[in-house]
Design a protein around this nucleic acid. Structure first.
Length: 713
DNA sequence: CTAGGGTTAG
């Protein structure tokens, strides 16, 4: 007996030496065989388990666990002391920390007795293993065996509710906590703030926060982060200032959240204020803080401040440089952006993408394609954002061929199914007039992924490419699954205008009003255009006058509306009026003015506008302007001037122009010019026939629509 | 002595 106890003593000291020296496996190997003859002191098991956990060794954790389980089952409960439950609890924690929830659960199920700590260990193990449902179900088992949860367990369970967005469960726990005088526990109260915040009940989160007697730095961090993630940047910043006011030193995370909040809200003033605070309190050397400040300045439009900080920074990492690149690109300084980009030590996917989208945003589409080329040579990496940007460049360039290539490429890369990319493809095909492909994608390949953006692209594409009936059909389809937007209606109204569907146009107008959409400049223009093309001049003037606007497109629509309805002089009055109001006319305005001059026979005035356009406004005349001048001069018999005009055009008149010139020469007699025109017409190919217009579908309409007496906003 | 928060750029 003495020999046995001496052997036991030497085993204990060997193990404890191994543990102290950190020799984990030597300690494990020295564990006595499972005979039940003697047990190590509990404190030694505890420190062994601490070592196991710190090494994250699942093998070691299993050896200790099986040793405990075996010793417990073979020890006669009466003679030798049994293994304390808390050691099993530590062992469960150890197994879980080493990555095996299954082993932890097995030990939990097998252990002889369980106390509150056992339940807590297994619940937090499940929670940490990313298995909140299991943790919640264990919690409910715990309640049904009659064990009262402690504050520690409650906070684990609250975290699980947050994970599962189980608001109902969280509310029940809240009630429970309130009844049990746990308010003074900061950790628990903070978990409560977090769960409400995560469920987006920010008012409840705030109430829970205000109930905390002494909010910790983490409590402040939670409320600030939750406001930020809920899109309430103003409240996030507000709470940050209150935190400082309360004398709590912000964590670095909290600081970056506050700066992000300012960035998201374009709150430059508050951002500067926080920046000053950070300089005074020694945060500015932190790399994340520094990057987020630079980004804040760049996003809030103070690009000079961003660049100044960037230039002063001793370490210019990829993140900070990328912020500066995108900031410069966003304010149109694409060349400066490229310079910073080229000066970067290394590029990654995000920085390449920033430069790419910069080109696209600055409308330097060729530049975007060139950069993509360069990117392909320097890296294999690319993702949906990359392809989406390049695709947007193709869309802008109306380069269907390259767009199709990218489509195939995206398919090959397996990036095809990103909704963002699919929408870019629908947009590309729609803009390029390949409506069949757009339709194919949207109807058969996007499935439930399609949204109002996809539909809007398709509808706008149909409208732009003279498939107005199809546009209205698509609108009806869209309504069964997505909410139309102002942009949808502007395309649909344009479709009605194209084929003079007054009834449908009115129905859409009524729908817009009935559903409370705001009539913005674009919609207002679309309505003016639709009514005037459909011949309801009164309606278009009423829509025009219903909202005063400085929008040049709206004025253009109204001026054209006058011309369609033979009110050229009124159109010219509007032309003068808009210039008086300081609205700068564009090429379309001048086209409208010329059309008005044609219908009213103001030949001299028309000619003076044509000069005014180039001389005063530096607008290069388009094909349509030349067509107008030919019509203006020809229609009213100014044959000498017409011939002179044709001779001075910077390009050869088109076949259609010659046809018109020929007609005018026949009417007013200009043999020389007429023969020239005839010659040109005979050289050219025959014109394509006019398309036959089919009937359009009925737009969804309720009986309450009084189409004759529309209310105006 | 177990529990709460969490890392900037497209």
């Amino acid at each position: 007996m003495a020999a046995a106890s001496a052997a036991a003593a030497s085993t204990v000291s060997a193990i404890s030496n191994h543990v102290a020296a950190g020799n984990l496996f030597a300690a494990i190997d020295a564990l006595p065989a499972c005979s039940g003859s003697f047990l190590l002191p509990a404190s030694l098991y505890a420190s062994l388990l601490r070592l196991v956990t710190s090494r994250r060794s699942l093998a070691a954790a299993r050896r200790v666990a099986s040793h405990l389980a075996c010793s417990s089952s073979s020890s006669p409960s009466t003679s030798s002391p049994s293994i304390p439950t808390f050691l099993f609890n530590r062992s469960i924690e150890s197994l879980a920390a080493c990555g095996s929830l299954a082993d932890a659960r097995e030990l939990f199920d097998a252990m002889p007795r369980r106390d509150g700590g056992s339940w807590n260990a297994i619940i937090s193990a499940a929670s940490r293993a990313g298995n909140p449902e299991e943790a919640l179900s264990l919690f409910s088992d715990m309640n049904s065996v009659g064990i009262r949860p402690k504050d520690v367990t409650l906070s684990s369970v609250l975290a699980c509710c947050a994970e599962c967005l189980d608001l109902h469960g969280a509310q029940q726990l809240h009630g429970h906590i309130a009844k049990r005088d746990f308010q003074s526990n900061v950790i628990l109260s903070t978990a409560l703030v977090d769960v409400y915040g995560k469920c987006l009940l920010l008012a409840d989160a705030r109430r829970a926060f205000d109930d905390i007697l002494q909010p910790s730095d983490i409590s402040w961090n939670v409320i600030i982060r939750r406001y930020l993630l809920a899109g309430m940047g103003d409240m996030a910043a507000h709470m940050f200032f209150r935190m400082i006011w309360a004398g709590v030193r912000p964590l670095v995370f909290t600081v970056t959240h506050a700066i992000l909040a300012c960035r998201d809200n374009y709150a430059l003033k508050e951002g500067r204020c926080i920046h000053t605070f950070l300089l005074r309190h020694g945060y500015e050397h932190h790399v994340h803080v520094r990057s987020s400040i630079v980004d804040m300045y760049a996003k809030c439009g103070d690009i000079d401040a961003a660049q100044r900080l960037f230039n002063l920074a001793p370490m210019k990492d990829v993140v900070m440089s990328t912020s500066v690149v995108s900031g410069l690109a966003a304010c149109g300084r694409i060349a400066d952006a490229k310079r910073v980009f080229d000066g970067m030590e290394q590029h990654n996917l995000v920085s390449w993408n920033a430069m790419l989208t910069g080109y696209v945003r600055s409308m330097d589409l060729a530049g975007a394609l060139d950069l993509f080329q360069q990117m392909r040579q320097e890296t294999k990496e690319l993702d949906a954002v990359t392809l989406g940007s390049v695709l947007n460049a193709c869309t802008g360039l109306l380069d269907l061929g390259k767009g199709e290539e990218l489509h195939a490429f995206a398919f090959k890369c397996g990036l095809f199914s990103y909704p963002f990319l699919m929408n870019a493809l629908v947009r590309m095909y729609s803009k390029c007039g390949c409506l069949r492909s757009a339709e194919q994608l949207l109807l058969f390949e996007m499935g439930s992924e399609r949204d109002s953006y996809s539909w809007n692209s398709l509808i706008a594409g149909y409208e732009r490419h003279s498939m107005s009936e199809a546009a209205l059909h698509a609108l009806r389809e869209m309504q069964s699954e997505a909410k139309p937007s102002q942009s949808t209606f502007s395309s649909a109204l344009a479709a009605c205008a194209n084929i003079f569907l007054l009834k449908h146009g009115k129905q859409i107008h009524a729908y817009i009003i009935r559903n409370g959409y705001e009539i913005d400049d674009i919609l207002q223009s679309a309505l003016v255009d639709m009514y005037s093309k459909c011949g309801l001049f009164d309606y278009s003037t009423r829509v025009f006058e219903s909202g005063l606007s400085q929008d040049v497109i709206l004025w253009n629509s109204m001026i054209f509306g006058c011309a369609y309805n033979s009110k050229g002089d009124y159109g010219l009055e509007l032309f003068d009026e808009m210039r008086k109001q300081g609205i700068v006319p564009d090429s379309v305005t001048f086209l409208g003015a010329l059309v008005s001059c044609i219908c009213e026979g103001h030949v001299g005035l028309g000619r003076s506008y044509f000069t005014l356009m180039t001389d005063e406004y530096s607008i290069v005349p388009h094909m349509e302007h030349y067509e107008c001048m030919i019509e203006l001069l020809g229609k009213h018999g100014y044959m000498v001037e017409l011939e002179d005009f044709v001779d001075h055009m910077p390009f050869e008149p088109t076949a259609a122009m010659w046809l018109r010139i020929f007609d005018c020469c026949r009417e007013y007699g200009n043999k020389k010019l007429g023969e020239r025109a005839a010659q040109r017409i005979n050289d050219s190919k025959p014109l394509t026939p006019v398309r036959f217009i089919e009937s359009a579908p009925d737009y969804e309409c309720s009986d309450s629509d009084d189409v004759e007496h529309l209310p105006y906003c």
